[in-house]
Design a protein around this nucleic acid. Structure first.
Lengths: 216, 216
DNA sequence: AAAATATAGATAAAAAAATATCGATACTCT
DNA sequence: AGAGTATCGATATTTTTTTATCTATATTTT
């Protein structure tokens, strides 16, 4: 039973906020700004300044007391913290509606992610192009993943095919899986999985709504 | 400046796991099972049993020492904890690729969410139907939201229209916003927002991958 | 130039979440 | 029937995360 192997990543909440900092900082730089303080940043992001300071501390960047941080430094520090300087190539498995949406999302470039091909089992999709990416027969996944030297896979297939598709990815040498299915994958130790559960956010929203209503 | 008003929701990590419990439990019930233990559940979800027990405790459900929990009880308890017994109706704003994907996602029914209409500013989309939901002119959002008595809005517009769209929703009486844009919304105190940042998961995956590589 | 204000960084405190331990209960197998 | 095992629930502990406080530094205002 080869699972449970992933060591725990710490400071998850801070890590999750990094892309938003990055987005805002990039915007600021475009607007000609050079420095920013935690106070300003906090206001933009609806956070407490102390949270921002702690988050940024994580990237190792150092600001100037009385002044703030250099925006350029911050951007670089966050990118290298996330290793988003070096573009990662990924393949996407499952060209359904979510898969299509992800293929169409242009923001990934900014995050150092480049989806180079898609795979599906549906003959009507195989051979077609979706947002400029060719859709290959899923049978060819191990072969192509290995030949293309990809090490990230984005999994958007129906639940029942999740584990099988993951196995094929791993066979093809992929060691990072972004898992949008409703299945906890069983993977060897060297493979890293990030599961995305869309309904989690809805659950949180529901609870927030409940609690608010109950109080008033 | 009316923000920062939302009281903090606690046990967020547990809440985020609820939909996954629910999904797995529903599946188990379909397979004819009646009871489940935290050990089994933990194995399915790649968690420690103690985590599962603590999570379930939150729903108020009570199990039987030596036996486990009744699956039916758990399902009910989780649903009522999330208030997913009573279906919530929502409108979706922004019928781009992400909006379409969400309109096409059938799992929402299980989560007590019913998207009843979509809105967009693009004349070529207005009047069309996407996955059986009509797309209305965004101008009509306040009027229709109020007439349809909806209180949840799913926001999928480009960043620059986010705040404006949110304002229209609120004008139409919506008090829960599921925000898929890259913008922190400024909303009155009685409105609850849940922001979904797709790149957050990618950031976490990147860090996991980094840490693994660095160690070996 | 002096006073007031804003800032990061270091350290400390508080709160929350994750994990462990232990006793009582039920089931399983001999 | 009895021994062994699995389970929950309650309580306690540890770890992690969040938040606060204080000091030195820079900027702005008077």
């Amino acid at each position: 039973m080869g699972f449970m192997g992933n060591k725990k990543v710490q400071k998850l909440p801070s890590i999750r906020r990094m892309p938003t900092y990055l987005h805002k900082l990039t915007q600021m730089r475009k607007n000609g700004l050079d420095t920013v303080s935690t106070t300003i940043m906090a206001r933009y992001m609806n956070l407490e300044p102390i949270v921002v300071r702690k988050d940024l501390e994580l990237t190792g960047v150092t600001g100037q007391p009385g002044v703030g941080y250099k925006i350029k430094d911050l951007i670089d520090a966050i990118k290298s913290f996330l290793n988003w300087h070096n573009t990662a190539e990924a393949v996407l498995i499952g060209a359904g509606s979510l898969g299509r949406a992800l293929l169409g999302y242009e923001g990934f470039e900014d995050y150092g992610l480049n989806i180079i091909a898609a795979f599906d089992a549906d003959p009507s999709k195989i051979g077609s192009e979706i947002h400029d990416r060719e859709v290959f027969d899923i049978i060819r996944l191990p072969e192509l993943a290995s030949r293309l030297q990809v090490n990230m896979g984005i999994l958007c297939v129906p639940n029942e095919y999740a584990q099988g598709s993951a196995d094929m990815m791993i066979e093809g040498g992929i060691n990072a899986i972004w898992n949008f299915t409703n299945v906890s994958l069983d993977v060897p130790e060297h493979v890293v999985v990030q599961r995305e559960v869309i309904a989690s956010g809805l659950a949180v929203l529901s609870v927030k709504l409940n609690q608010r209503i109950m109080e008033e």
